[in-house]
Amino acid sequence: MNRCPTTSFTRTLLAGCAAVLLWTALPTAAQVQPGLGVTRNFPPSALRGVLTIDTVAQATLNNRPIRLAPGMRLFSPQNTLVMAHSVIGQTFKVNYVIENSTGMLLTAWILTEKEAAQPRKGSDAVHFNFRTESANK
């Protein structure tokens, strides 16, 4: 005995709802959207550079390899967190902070065009922890 007869309309409705839920739950392609006009304040120690995420533990910053700190945070132009695995292979203009004790990339903010146009100190200069006679001249 079937006490809950299902009609074709009910089946179609349930299938349609399931399709909509599945479609909205699927991850979209990792794309970083432009900023929403929100002004972000960066720490004074943040530098400017070009960042390419190579793997979840390795990146290229200003054409030099750099390790990502275990707690590395990458912020989108909307100031939301971006998971490193979702942007592997992509290159961004960023402001960034490097951890002093380890030299690993600690935080990076993907910049909007407006933020990128503002001048900020970059890290293109080579810094040494020793002096030579030629550096003193």
Rank of each mutant, 00 (worst) to 15 (best):
T52W: 04
Q78V: 13
V82E: 08
Q33M: 11
Q58M: 05
R40Y: 02
S8Q: 09
Q90F: 02
R11C: 12
I66L: 01
L14N: 15
T28D: 04
V32H: 05
L51P: 07
C4I: 07
I53W: 03
P5A: 12
E99C: 09
V87G: 05
A15Q: 05
G49C: 06
A125F: 09
L22H: 09
T24R: 13
E133N: 12
K93F: 09
S123F: 11
P44K: 00
P65W: 12
P65R: 11
V126N: 01
H85M: 08
G103E: 04
A19S: 12
E99G: 03
V38D: 09
G71K: 14
T28H: 04
R40W: 00
M1I: 03
C4M: 08
E113A: 11
V82L: 13
R48T: 03
A116K: 07
L14H: 10
E113W: 11
L105C: 01
G71F: 08
T10I: 14
P77L: 07
N95M: 06
A108S: 13
F130G: 07
V32M: 13
A57L: 08
A46S: 06
A30K: 13
W23N: 09
V50R: 14
A117L: 11
A117W: 11
A69N: 13
T107P: 00
N62S: 05
T28W: 02
R73G: 01
R64V: 01
T112V: 02
A108N: 05
S45V: 00
F128V: 12
T6A: 06
A19H: 06
A57N: 05
L22T: 15
F42Y: 04
K137Y: 08
P65S: 13
A25F: 12
S86E: 15
L14K: 13
